[in-house]
Simulated assay, not measured.
Amino acid sequence: MRDHAVNPVIAELRERIERLEGGTIQSRAVLPFGVPAIDGHLPGGGLVLGALHEVAGGGNGAIDGAAAASFAAGIAARTKGKVLWCMTRADLFAPALAQVGLPPGRVIYVEAGDEKALLSCIEEGLRHGGLGAVVGELARLSMTASRRLQLAAEGSGTIGIAIRRWRRQAEASDFGQPTASATRWRVSVLPSTPLPVPGVGRARWLLELIRARAGESADFEVEACDAKGRIALPSDVADGSPQKEIGRRFATA
Rank of each mutant, 00 (worst) to 15 (best):
P198Q: 01
S181M: 11
L207E: 05
R204L: 04
G199K: 05
A214G: 06
W185C: 07
V187I: 15
T183S: 12
L206C: 10
A180N: 03
V197R: 12
P198W: 01
G176F: 14
T183I: 10
W185I: 10
V187Y: 06
V200W: 07
G201F: 09
R186E: 15
R202Y: 00
A214D: 08
I210S: 11
V187W: 03
P196G: 08
F175P: 00
R213Q: 09
G176I: 09
T179W: 10
V200H: 11
P191L: 06
P198F: 02
S188D: 09
R202E: 15
V187F: 01
R186Q: 15
T183V: 09
P196E: 12
R202C: 02
A180L: 08
V187K: 02
S188H: 04
G215R: 00
L206V: 11
P178R: 01
A212V: 14
W205Y: 07
T183M: 05
P191A: 08
G215T: 09
R184N: 06
R184T: 07
G201S: 00
P191V: 03
G215W: 00
P191G: 08
Q177G: 08
T183E: 04
G201D: 04
W185Y: 09
S188N: 06
P194D: 10
P196Y: 04
R202A: 15
R211G: 12
L206W: 01
V189Q: 12
R204N: 11
A214S: 11
P191H: 04
A203P: 00
A203Q: 13
W185Q: 03
T183A: 02
R184A: 10
V187N: 10
Q177M: 14
L209Y: 03
S188Y: 03
A214Q: 08
W205R: 01
R202S: 14
R211L: 13
R184P: 11
T179Y: 08
T193K: 09
G199Q: 04
F175D: 05
V197Y: 15
V200M: 09
A203G: 11
L190D: 11
P196L: 08
G176V: 07
P178E: 01
I210P: 00
G199D: 08
S181Y: 13
R211H: 14
P198L: 00
L195P: 05
